[in-house]
Design a binder for these strands. Structure first.
Lengths: 127, 127, 127, 127
DNA sequence: GTGGTCTAGACCACC
DNA sequence: GTGGTCTAGACCACT
């Protein structure tokens, strides 16, 4: 499904979280679809299952997946309540980044058009 | 100047970096203005000078301050070459955040107006 | 693996960096091979682990090694992206040296043959 | 004559040495021409005269200038004996740089042509 | 057991 | 007095 980058300084579970998010956001994994089991993913990445467990637990808290005991984990459908909390946590981060870019005279127009583009891709998928 | 939060899980030098960035971005510390010496800040925060040194060194690499041996540390004037590299490193982060917000159906208009606001504050200062 | 020269005026971590670079460039340490752990090297040189850490961190920034928490440090395979940046930083240095040699009437042919020789050794290793 | 860069981490006298070398190598300062007095340069750069003194002393040792008591300092004519020693000291540095570039697969041809160019400029001046 | 962070206290080069 | 380097010894996060 994906590979780990050992050059990356973040903990492995952070990388796994990110890769999973990309798969979900990009639509490769669709709402209510089953994601690989902890054991399978641990085996295919040849790392400790605890590391996967930790990543899945975080993803569940951030509203990306939900798990059903003895059945597996599944992609959370959008517009879930939990997403609102997640969005609230994301706003300070985006503020920080934008302030930094503004300070360094990064053109606002360029930033906005970048956002338009990302939102545009999403629209396409929804068609 | 500011206080540290010992409940925060991040390393102290990360917190110091963040607080300093806010002071610089918000214009409290102006370009070429002198920032507190390593020793002074260590004393006022009652932590070890090495921790400050580490924070200052990182801030220097990210283009926020520059240090001169035996003279002190100063705020880097904007439009410095090093800022371009920093901006390059920031773009993937902003892309990731925006993708996440788009996925969660956060309204694009709200995001753009938030950006307008932050850039607006900057304009005011420049007046 | 190597010894430190306490008569040398440079900081210890600079010496360590240089020796490590020689080992890597000469091929004694091969790509993706593990280098001694921070603690082991500190013990074998009878200096403080922090000094090694500093050297390793710098070597990582210059593209010679990469570190994985809880796993160890390893030699970076060549043709990595980070090398391009490093090369860019090296060019002004080489220009300065060559200008100086040219000014002192050091024969160009001798300089070029010296370069041929160094590149030649590299070819041999690749065979 | 030139300006100091306080962003540069090297000691001031190192920068002064480098700038003076450039002036001499580029031919702006000609053999046996008088270089600015310690006092004048200290005044124009608004730094401590000791710093200039240190730079001049080093330049003399490296064969770039010679000083006559009560008369001032002058540019050393080329092909002086002292230059041979300097060249000897430069060779290990160039070897180190070239090894590093070779290791990172920097094309030999590109390096050689760069050298040709630098030597070429020197020829022009001698015409 | 590994790399990363932190403290306390020291010395050095530079200006 | 300033930033930079170093030591000794400790604790933490991660695998």
């Amino acid at each position: 499904m994906f590979q780990l980058d050992y050059m990356d300084h973040r903990p492995l579970y952070e990388q796994i979280k990110e890769k999973m998010k990309v798969l979900i956001i990009s639509g490769v994994l669709k709402p209510n679809e089953r994601v690989p089991s902890v054991r399978d993913m641990a085996q295919s990445l040849t790392i400790n299952p605890n590391t996967i467990q930790k990543a899945y637990k975080d993803l569940e808290q951030e509203g990306y997946i939900y798990s059903i005991r003895a059945k597996g984990s599944f992609v959370t459908p959008i517009n879930n309540k939990i997403h609102q909390a997640r969005i609230g946590g994301l706003m300070p981060e985006i503020d920080k980044l934008v302030s930094e870019l503004a300070y360094m005279n990064f053109p606002k127009e360029q930033l906005v058009s970048r956002i338009e583009e990302i939102y545009g891709k999403k629209e396409e998928k929804n068609d």
